[in-house]
Simulated assay, not measured.
Amino acid sequence: MTTWTSDEINRIATADELEVAPLGGDGTRLRPVPIWVVRHDDDLYVRSYKGDDGRWYRAAKASGQGSIQAGGVDRDVTFVAEDDPGLNEQIDAAYRSKYHRYGQNYVETIVSPGVRATTLKLLPR
């Protein structure tokens, strides 16, 4: 299994946004969408701000593959659904800590139950 290098994970985790481009149903890469990304331990996580309505999220969930760019890192990834309640609480805390400067409305949306249900772990390929 491929893992993030410490340089990659640090550069991605400290980037304000990540551009995600999942594969569509026909196998072509969708147009990149800027989203928030957080780190917990040595893993990276993303969520769909629009919940299940996020086009990029639906494509990522369906294909399980795509690419990301952040902090000068450009990698193909596998998307893995994450639904562990204890881990999601820690991911919530990471979102609150990293993005608090954007205001409570944005942060409370990204940690709300409907959005929390879209948590995806990013695994490098």
Results as ranks from 00 to 15, higher is better:
His100Ala: 15
His40Asp: 13
Lys98Asp: 02
Asp74Lys: 11
Lys98Trp: 06
Val73Glu: 05
Asn10Tyr: 03
Ser67Gln: 15
Pro85Met: 06
Thr118Pro: 08
Gly54Val: 07
Arg29Glu: 14
Asp92Met: 01
Ala60Arg: 00
Gly54Arg: 08
Gln65Ser: 14
Asp7Glu: 12
Asp16Lys: 13
Arg75Lys: 10
Gly66Ile: 00
Lys50Val: 09
Asp26Met: 12
Arg11Asp: 10
Pro32Glu: 10
Asp83Pro: 01
Val46Trp: 05
Tyr95His: 12
Thr78Pro: 00
Lys98Cys: 06
Glu17Ser: 13
Gly71Lys: 02
Leu23Arg: 06
Gln104Tyr: 04
Val38Asp: 06
Ile35Asn: 02
Gly114Tyr: 04
Asp92Cys: 03
Thr28Ser: 14
Tyr49Ala: 10
Val38Cys: 11
Thr109Ala: 12
Val37Asn: 01
Arg39Met: 00
Ala60Glu: 01
Thr28Val: 14
Asp83Glu: 14
Ile9Arg: 04
Trp56Pro: 00
Glu19Arg: 13
Arg31Asp: 13
Ile91Lys: 14
Asp7Lys: 09
Pro113Met: 07
Gly72Asn: 04
Leu30Ser: 11
Val107Leu: 08
Ala70Gln: 07
Thr14Tyr: 03
Val115Tyr: 04
Arg47Thr: 01
Gln104Lys: 13
Arg47Asp: 01
Val73Trp: 02
Arg11Glu: 10
